[in-house]
Design a protein around this nucleic acid. Sequence first.
DNA 1: AATAAGTGAATGGTCATTCATTAACTAATA
DNA 2: TATTAGTTAATGAATGACCATTCACTTATT
Lengths: 203, 203
Amino acid sequence: MAERKPRKSQQELIIAEASRLFWEKGYAETSMKDIASACGFRPANIYNYFGGKEEILYEILLQEMMEIVSPIKHLKEDEGVDPVTCLRMLVENHVRLTLGEKSRSKLLFDVGLNNLSPARRKKIISLRDNYDQIGIAIIRRGKKAGVFSKEIDEKIAVFSIASIIARSRIWYSPKGKYSVDEIIEFIVQFSLRGLGAGTSAGR
Amino acid sequence: MAERKPRKSQQELIIAEASRLFWEKGYAETSMKDIASACGFRPANIYNYFGGKEEILYEILLQEMMEIVSPIKHLKEDEGVDPVTCLRMLVENHVRLTLGEKSRSKLLFDVGLNNLSPARRKKIISLRDNYDQIGIAIIRRGKKAGVFSKEIDEKIAVFSIASIIARSRIWYSPKGKYSVDEIIEFIVQFSLRGLGAGTSAGR
DNA sequence: AATAAGTGAATGGTCATTCATTAACTAATA
DNA sequence: TATTAGTTAATGAATGACCATTCACTTATT
């Protein structure tokens, strides 16, 4: 017989399909029946793996936020690497996760946050704060090193850069004119110039 | 006793309340009962003014897109004004509409587009295209005038700037640290630098 | 009287969730 | 090896809630 045994655990399957559907149709517009159908079984079975719909959303957000933060965590206090390289790594990692073909890492970021219970929302937001703090630290070091313009507000700058990346998935198309690498390059350059890096450093 | 007569037409009231609710809770999560309650009457009455829920969403999006595009339409072929000023006007108009306290102009941009019928979605998207075209024209003129960097891709640049603005509503708070004017100033400067307009280039 | 504004009740539909039950598989036992 | 017990995976049916929409009807306004 083909396979009765889960090649990957069913929970991963549910997460993957739900993640795709939530992004394609939205959280409220996706029914448990939709998710179950995509996985090849009936709605009731989902409750053997998750407490409910909200829990699925939570697990997706949690997983995706960690995927974004983990690979760049070390940049926060990495005094050795120069800020320009740090920023490039932050952008590249985030864009690749956002536009990558692996449907697993299609973050919803804050799209579905209000569908979460307060406790869970708090947890997700605290993870996002980590991301912000890393970006802020990088920019601050860049200012101190005279690489970025002194009058830049770190917080708004990080929000702005993250906004470009988060929204890139709306206008990006794999069949479109631009490759992921080109988009990364654009956002890196645009951000660096926006921060005042390049020709005139520091001031 | 006070006022039986609509000070403003009921349709405007419905649009205003629905717009606020759609933003706060999302389209699917907002019921006709919610909208009716916010307006002070019963769900059935809404159907005296609108064909249905989707039509309300459409009217909101239509109105908000036009509010964004109309005031800057003339910038597309305005050869007289310098590109830096043009870009500033585009950003300022968009940010004020996005963050302004008038709850009427709280655009959803493309948040609820997939809840629209194909024909209506097409109409809204064509309006958004207008916005993009204006931005592209401005940047192209700037490049020709030697104000912006030649290797900038106009399209991605406009998307990026619009992304920052559209998402600013997520992190902006009226009670927060920054005023709307400060945010405008930041986004304008960040965008101009991103486009390669150095301190020497602008004026 | 005639029109406009607003309503209560009903309709058909969908949805998330529960639960008792069956099917499928595993491991231990006789 | 054959049987059984136990565990996990999956299901069908039912529940209660909510929702958009319709329509005949009442109330208010001109």
